Amino acid sequence: MEFSDDQGLGTAIRNAYSPAWSARAAAGRHLAKSRAIDEVAEVLHRLLLDPQDTAVTWETAEALLGRKDAMGLRLVLLARSYAAEQATAEEIQAALDCNPDWMTTEGADRLIKHLRDLAMDEDAGVRDEARRILGRLRPR
């Protein structure tokens, strides 16, 4: 994944509050690529739990998982643990279940490593989600 140089970060943050779902989804994709992900984590969390359109949830989750790092996965797991709306929870779960990177040996190994690390996370929701997924996976 190519990270953004954070140009347009302010615009993306403003677009995260747009009434247009497509602008919010684009903001989620842009912010997910940010090198300053810690600084925009709260906005990404809100986009993952977008109450108006699950397309925003899907696009943001896909972009975060596309980072192929523990932080992107952590944000998706955290949102999954908070998802109260069934459609939102299902959209996040579908992004987790259908990530094509995890169909490769390298990608699956990376996922398992990240999940094992996140199973010890300080946040109970992240820990529980990581452990739930690990429990569904069969060890090699």
Rank of each mutant, 00 (worst) to 15 (best):
I92S: 07
Q93H: 11
D117E: 06
D69I: 03
E122A: 10
V126C: 01
L64A: 12
D128S: 11
E129V: 03
R67C: 10
L118F: 03
E129Y: 01
R80V: 06
S81L: 06
T88Q: 15
Y82F: 11
G125S: 04
K68E: 14
L64I: 09
R74M: 13
D117F: 03
L65D: 13
Q86E: 13
E85L: 10
A79N: 07
T104S: 13
A119F: 03
N99P: 02
E90Q: 15
D123R: 08
L115T: 05
R127L: 03
D121Q: 02
I112M: 04
A94V: 11
E91W: 00
L96R: 02
A87F: 04
A119D: 07
R116W: 00
I112T: 12
L111K: 03
Q86V: 14
V126G: 01
E90S: 12
R127Q: 13
Y82R: 15
L134W: 02
N99R: 05
L96V: 00
A119N: 07
D128L: 06
V76A: 11
A124I: 13
A108M: 12
A87L: 09
R132C: 08
G135F: 05
N99C: 14
L118C: 03
L75K: 05
M71N: 08
K68G: 07
A63P: 06
A70F: 00
L96Q: 11
K68C: 09
I133S: 00
R67A: 14
K113C: 03
A124H: 02
V76I: 07
A124S: 08
A124L: 08
A63I: 07
L78W: 14
A84N: 09
E106D: 09
D109K: 05
T105I: 06
R80T: 14
K113N: 02
R74F: 00
G72N: 09
A63E: 14
A94E: 13
E122C: 00
E91D: 11
N99M: 08
L64D: 02
R80Q: 15
E85K: 14
H114K: 02
G125T: 11
R67D: 10
G135L: 06
P100Y: 06
G72W: 02
A124T: 10
R67F: 09
A108Y: 07
Q93N: 14
E122H: 05
E106G: 00
A83M: 04
A94F: 12
L118D: 08
D109V: 06
K113E: 10
A130Q: 02
A84L: 12
E85H: 10
R74S: 11
M103R: 15
L78M: 13
D69K: 10
Q93R: 15
G72Y: 07
A95C: 14
G125E: 04
R116T: 08
P100H: 06
A63S: 12
R127I: 08
L111T: 03
L77P: 14
G107S: 04
D123I: 12
T105S: 05
A70H: 07
